[in-house]
Amino acid sequence: MDDFSIEEALAEYGRILEVPAGRSMEPMLRDRRDTMVLAGLKREPRRGDVVLFRDRSGGHTLHRVIKKKKDGYLTRGDNCVRSDGVCPREAVVGILEGFYKGEKYYDCSSSPAYKLYVAYVRLSYLPRRAANGARSLLKKLKIRTDEKR
């Protein structure tokens, strides 16, 4: 078996199978349970695409493009309320083409279920962010109350 980086594997094979690590893209991609098909970049990523990019730590992150910016892409995990900041264009190395949940394959360009999910992620962002803010505030109030006792 040859030693390849993800970039080299994508250049060699065009598409690779990978396992997501972490929970930032749940519920779509479950940590180490689902599998995903990553493809090399053949077009400019669009809003809603899930892209693989080299992050500031030197590792790779797979998050969704929320907005195209002049110098790159604003990205965020589906299970996150904060964005990652702007990912430079040259840092993007691949794009999510589809994923398997068990044996069932979802094609990101054609699956109706996936398109519905993407719409849900977009529409639910503000309510989720508000709920997260409320939870943080309640937590802070509880800590202050506990300290006063």
Binding site: V19, R33, E97
Partner: peptide, 11 residues
Amino acid sequence: VGGSVMAVAVG
């Protein structure tokens, strides 16, 4: 995967 067969360790 795109006409090929690939395997990855899971869990």
